[in-house]
């Protein structure tokens, strides 16, 4: 717990017009942790991911990863640094196979340029072969190997979520951002997902997890951070957070609004 933070957000703020989606957020994620990020709808969780990955520039504040700032980088450069993500509203490349999706995730770790692709030297073929092996290994790891050659949009909902995880892992990230991976899964699938996330951590990938399903978050997170109206209202081990009155109020309050 004393290790230097892997990801650190300081006073991170993001406005959309008059709306403050993130309000001076401080967030730390340390290596080899699973951190849960929760909060009512519209709390700013996804926005936090979007700012960290460079989709939206922050209005103010700082994001550093492994001690270096990632503010101002394009999303592709952020991925290159070692942060990969999945999307709340699944965004697989629908017309491509699961395998191809994972290979696109591997894109940043491959070197072949246009000339190499045309001449297809032995090195290029080797690289392709290794990439396919790696992607297949991830499809196996996430449990969708038998759908490797099926079009992404023909997969079941749960399998699509897993394909997104495989695609993100293909870039060998050190930090994985999961945006509601359990949404739309049945209880059995959620159980499998729990195992998967722990296995991801055991591979040495740190996980920051947005999730509404409390059993998933509370079951696997080492630490939970609660957002409401863009602000952090609580932070700590799952049990403590669960009993925090401010958290209860945020959830119940928003349920009444």
């Amino acid at each position: 717990m004393s290790a230097a933070p892997l990801l650190e957000c300081r006073a991170l703020t993001r406005r959309f017009g008059g709306l403050v989606a993130l309000d001076a957020l401080h967030l730390e994620v340390r290596p080899a942790e699973v951190v849960g990020l929760i909060g009512p709808n519209g709390a700013g969780k996804t926005t936090a991911f979007n700012v960290v990955t460079g989709i939206h520039p922050p209005t103010a504040g700082e994001v550093s990863f492994e001690g270096r700032s990632v503010v101002g980088l394009r999303p592709s450069a952020v991925l290159q640094r070692g942060i990969a993500r999945t999307f709340q509203n699944i965004r697989l490349f629908r017309g491509m196979t699961a395998l191809e999706n994972a290979l696109v995730g591997r894109h940043a770790r491959l070197r072949t340029g246009p000339l190499g692709a045309i001449l297809r030297s032995r090195r290029v073929v080797e690289e392709e072969r290794a990439a396919v092996d790696f992607a297949m290994e991830l499809l196996r790891f996430t449990g969708i190997e038998r759908h490797a050659l099926a079009r992404a949009d023909s997969l079941s909902y749960g399998d699509q979520r897993r394909a997104e995880i495989a695609r993100a892992l293909a870039s060998e990230p050190r930090l994985l951002l999961l945006d509601e991976p359990a949404a739309g899964m049945n209880p059995r699938e959620k159980g499998v997902l729990n195992e998967l996330i722990l296995a991801i951590r055991d591979r040495g990938v740190t996980v920051l997890l947005i999730e509404h399903d409390m059993r998933v978050v509370m079951g696997i997170s080492d630490r939970v951070v609660v957002l409401d109206h863009g602000q952090k209202i609580a932070e700590g081990p799952p049990d403590a957070v669960r009993r925090d009155p401010r958290v209860l109020e945020a959830y119940l309050g928003s349920a009444h609004a």
Partner: peptide, 28 residues
């Protein structure tokens, strides 16, 4: 050959979903 390579996959990903492709490391 371009199509059946890393480049072709990046193009196809971009065609399907530009910003997801960028998040997956494709330099648009």
């Amino acid at each position: 050959r371009l199509n059946r390579s890393r480049i072709g996959r990046a193009w196809a990903a971009m065609r399907e979903d530009e910003s997801a492709a960028e998040c997956m490391g494709v330099n648009l």
